[in-house]
Nucleic acid binder design. Structure first.
Lengths: 212, 212
DNA sequence: CGTCCATCGCAACTCCTTGTTGCGTTAGAG
DNA sequence: CTCTAACGCAACAAGGAGTTGCGATGGACG
């Protein structure tokens, strides 16, 4: 199907549609941030986008599809993985990038991914793929540090990375405290200290490597 | 008002009401765990409780009040704070108690507190008071460890405790992995290693005490 | 500059859930 | 057994989810 890019005589006058589509998706994110998924109404989204309700339903099958599209588009940003040569700097930078990514738009949007909208199978998939991709791409950061001798042999990248993001998501979802660079630096410090102590060395079960 | 306990001639035949009330609250928690706050309908709750819809509305003003009551009752369990004489055992036990508390009923109920229902001011208050109370009561666990010389001087109890619960809530809310004792032990190991490295020493800002 | 057609606005509709009201019925304390 | 608070039931208004048909509009192309 090359009818998309080739200017072969009148296929799709998508001049209007693109702008409307973008406006509706942006309005959806704004509404999600303000009232949350449970209280999100299609009419409010349409009104905020300067568009009629039926226009929304013409392009999206139902409310869920709309929310899925809006959130999917929002997380479709592939963050870079730092590589400074020092594991402490790498972790600190990685955490700061995550904090920035979570706070670029309204903070409420990111939290929505983990609220009731997360019960939608599509959103759960988006989340799964997001973390799988990030962990896969950030793993070399850890293995490089092990090769440099900065971290113990057998350090499990996934365990370490989960420890790095845990304090950040705790503030976002549980304690509802603001996210800033200090948050990221603190998370990096915790994880680095634990990693140097060998807490993240791979083992059969996932848990205690500590000699109690 | 002693009319409550004294059997002074016909004041309140609350025989039926109590049972109905408990049944409705239990049904609400079950529904929350199954379909979530966003999809919770009063009729489904009433039907599950074997009660008519109007009966629910007679006792609770609206859906929000019902959910608030059900969740408030559910978290009204004051967990004990361990004191074994060893900080490693204390933290491990504290984490295990939290994991148990989060998984006693359906796992979904605890997560509901942090979903869209958390936008209700009353639920936010319940959460705030829950953590404030827990941190206040668990703080001596940390200060005792400092006095024993098991942790560095100036270790901030709140920072340490947040680090302890962060990996647990990450699994509950973000990665949706099951919670077990291994999860708790791992969280305790991370926090203990970081604490011994002095990451949680109090400072002006909240964050970097690490000499990078 | 004018045509043409996809897209949008609009009104009216059905269905479902919230929340309310009035009346008849039942459970249970005395 | 009696009496009353609490419950079941049917019917109701209000509001949001989706749907449909028709008329208006705006942008791509000739």
């Amino acid at each position: 199907m090359d009818a998309q890019s080739a200017p072969a005589g009148r296929v799709k006058p998508v001049g209007r549609g693109a702008k409307v589509c973008a406006a509706v998706l942006a309005a959806t994110l704004d509404e999600l941030a303000e009232v949350g998924y449970a209280n999100l109404t299609v009419e409010a989204v349409a009104q905020r986008a300067g568009v009629h309700k039926t226009t929304v339903y013409r392009r999206w099958k139902d409310r869920e599809t709309l929310v899925v599209d809006a959130l999917t588009e929002h997380v479709a940003a592939d963050l870079p993985i730092p590589d400074t040569g020092d594991v402490a700097s790498d972790l600190r930078e990685l955490a700061r990038l995550l904090v920035t990514h979570l706070t670029v738009t309204h903070l409420g949007v990111a939290a929505t991914m983990f609220s009731d909208a997360g019960r939608l199978p599509e959103i759960a998939d988006v989340r799964r793929r997001f973390f799988a991709d990030r962990f896969r791409r950030a793993a070399p950061l850890v293995t490089r540090a092990v090769e440099r001798g900065q971290l113990p042999e057998g350090t499990d990248p996934a365990l370490l990375l989960k420890s790095l993001i845990a304090p950040i998501y705790l503030r976002l979802l549980v304690t509802c405290e603001p996210l800033d660079d200090a948050t990221a630096d603190h998370a990096a410090a915790i994880t680095l200290a634990a990693a140097r102590a060998g807490v993240f060395r791979a083992h059969d079960a996932h848990g205690q490597s500590e000699t109690h």
